[in-house]
Computed example of a mutant assay.
Amino acid sequence: MRIVVDLNRCQGYAQCAFLAPQVFELHGEEALMYTPQPPAGQRERVLRAAAACPVQAILVEDRPEDRPEDRPEDRPEAPGAEGRSGVR
């Protein structure tokens, strides 16, 4: 996951800092500091923070390796495929 915040649009409402404090932090009244590539464990908090931004200043970009459904180890096996590989 990668985060981009439009700092020209951000008005310092701090909803993001409230919902994902390990990723977003408000310094002073308007200076937002954030982690552009947060840990995977912060995914849900970051998505909630982006959705809660009153001016929609937060863009969250998913990378395929960040989504659980795109990781090969997390994909369910096809029924009846136990013990078989795709190579003959």
Rank of each mutant, 00 (worst) to 15 (best):
R2E: 10
I3T: 03
I3S: 01
I3A: 01
V4S: 08
V4Y: 07
V5H: 01
V5L: 01
D6L: 02
L7Y: 04
L7V: 05
L7M: 10
L7Q: 09
L7R: 11
N8F: 02
R9H: 02
C10V: 03
C10A: 04
G12F: 02
Y13N: 03
Y13C: 05
A14K: 06
A17I: 05
F18G: 00
F18E: 06
F18P: 00
L19C: 07
A20K: 02
A20R: 03
V23Q: 01
V23Y: 01
E25D: 07
E25Q: 13
E25F: 04
L26N: 02
L26C: 04
L26E: 01
H27Y: 05
H27I: 04
G28Y: 03
G28L: 03
G28P: 01
G28I: 03
E29F: 09
E29S: 13
E30C: 00
A31H: 15
L32F: 07
M33K: 08
M33A: 11
M33W: 07
Y34L: 06
P36S: 13
P36E: 13
Q37Y: 06
Q37C: 05
A40K: 12
A40F: 08
A40E: 15
Q42Y: 06
R43Y: 04
E44P: 00
E44V: 12
R45Q: 14
R48G: 02
A49P: 07
A49M: 12
A49N: 11
A50P: 02
A50Y: 04
A51V: 06
A51H: 09
A52M: 09
C53A: 10
C53P: 06
C53L: 10
P54Q: 09
P54V: 09
P54Y: 09
P54H: 10
V55Q: 14
A57S: 15
A57W: 07
I58S: 02
I58F: 07
I58L: 09
L59V: 13
L59S: 13
L59K: 14
V60M: 06
E61V: 15
E61R: 15
E61F: 07
R63W: 09
P64C: 03
P64W: 07
P64I: 06
P64M: 05
E65A: 12
E65I: 08
D66V: 09
R67Q: 15
R67F: 04
R67I: 15
P68L: 15
E69Q: 12
D70A: 14
R71V: 14
R71N: 11
E73N: 08
D74H: 15
R75F: 02
R75M: 12
E77W: 08
E77C: 04
A78G: 04
P79V: 11
A81V: 06
A81T: 13
G83A: 13
R84C: 05
S85C: 11
G86R: 15
G86K: 10
G86N: 10
G86V: 13
V87S: 12
V87I: 15
